[in-house]
Design a protein around this nucleic acid. Structure first.
Length: 362
DNA sequence: TATACGTGGCA
DNA sequence: TTGCCAAGTAT
């Protein structure tokens, strides 16, 4: 950092005081609320997380409420937000706090860091905002702001970038209002120092920003090389029996863990989706019979692209749903379950719920 | 260290 | 349409 941390901090805080958005968790220093907010906001745009935060607080105003809740209820509130492991870990951490700490929330970075789902970023965010601890909360925004600001110290070395950003951030939170400094860097990254079209003309740090000076804002932050995203095919069975739909709950760990969906089976190598569907019917204990090819839906995950071939069928006998993880549900019951995005879309397209009732806000 | 882990908005 | 990116964490 060329300019002194004191100068940069002052400009940052002055800008923040005049330009910060009214995010709902900005009204509190309650560590529980900040922890929930930061968890919801992981890899999620803050504005989008805000609507979930309000619902979450209405439902679970205290850590004891969260700990006492069913995981299914927590996942339902999380539906549509993605990265559902966050919800499971948040729930587990709340239970640990109540069982092992008598409901007392951690007060330091080090203590927060021991909770499941709380990494360096979240521990620093909560510790600084709720308790004033001078620890740097480095998210994607902060990384971009400081990598650009310190561009000439970084060169083309990704590891060096991490060290430079960490050092700069740590220097900035080492004075007044560490929590606000962290938020100011994030806010600046979100509103001004944006990934594609930074608004350098309105940036309070532009005068000392190396990327701005040398026209390198497009080059920083350095990013690891992109991996190719494979395509995987699946067959999905939308089976009805006496007005009910067959749904299954996904395994608690892994992709979309704990969520419900219509039975879905991966196509083997060289296998036609219709063959996969027939084999799936058999595995579910359903009687063999005609399945009508339905829509073909595409869904992009972070690490693969899913092509879903939907097959529609009606059966006379329920055969399958003895397992607790497999159920025949009415349309109303379907609405109440935490569903995957694709399943929610399918449920709507099939007309199991009134139009316009969307679970995810925004 | 590299990879798994969702979803929606945006250019 | 496609890829990037978002107040990251765990393994």
């Amino acid at each position: 950092m060329k300019a002194t941390p004191v100068t940069v901090r002052r400009r940052l805080l002055e800008w923040f005081d005049g330009h910060r958005r009214a995010l709902p968790w900005r009204q509190t220093t309650d560590p529980y609320r900040l922890w929930v907010a930061e968890t919801l906001a992981q890899q999620t745009q803050a504005v989008r997380a805000a609507a979930y935060y309000l619902r979450f607080m209405a439902c679970f105003p205290t850590v004891a409420d969260l700990a006492a809740a069913d995981l299914n209820t927590v996942l339902k509130l999380w539906e549509g937000l993605g990265y559902y492991q966050r919800a499971r870990r948040l729930h587990r951490a709340a239970q640990e706090i109540c069982a092992l700490r008598q409901g007392q929330l951690p007060a330091t970075f080090a203590e927060w860091r021991t909770l499941p789902g709380v990494g360096d970023y979240t521990a620093a965010a909560v510790a600084s905002m709720a308790f004033g601890e001078p620890v740097a909360a480095i998210d994607g925004n902060v990384r971009r702001v400081l990598a650009r600001f310190c561009a000439t110290d970084i060169g083309d070395d990704l590891a060096r970038q991490a060290a430079v950003v960490q050092a700069a951030a740590q220097a900035l939170v080492g004075g007044a209002r560490p929590g606000d400094v962290n938020q100011a860097l994030m806010e600046l990254g979100a509103m001004v120092c944006r990934p594609r079209t930074p608004r350098c003309a309105t940036c309070p740090l532009a005068a000392d920003c190396m990327a701005q000076r040398y026209k390198l804002t497009a080059h920083y932050p350095l990013r690891p090389p992109r991996r190719i995203r494979p395509t995987r095919m699946f067959a999905c069975l939308l089976v009805t029996w006496q007005g009910r739909y067959l749904v299954v709950r996904r395994h608690q760990t892994g992709l979309l863990g704990g969520l419900w969906e219509f039975p879905t089976f991966p196509c083997r190598e060289g296998e036609l989706p219709a063959e996969t569907a027939a084999s799936g019917r058999h595995r579910l204990g359903l009687p063999p019979g005609p399945s009508t090819p339905g829509p073909v839906l595409a869904h992009n995950f972070t690490h693969f692209r899913q092509i879903l071939h939907v097959f529609l069928a009606t059966v006379e006998t329920p055969g399958a749903a003895t397992d607790a993880e497999v159920r025949w549900v009415t349309p109303d019951e379907l609405d109440a379950l935490p569903l995957t995005r694709l399943a929610r879309r399918l449920a709507q397209s099939v007309g199991t719920k009134p139009a316009g009732v969307e679970t995810a806000p925004g």
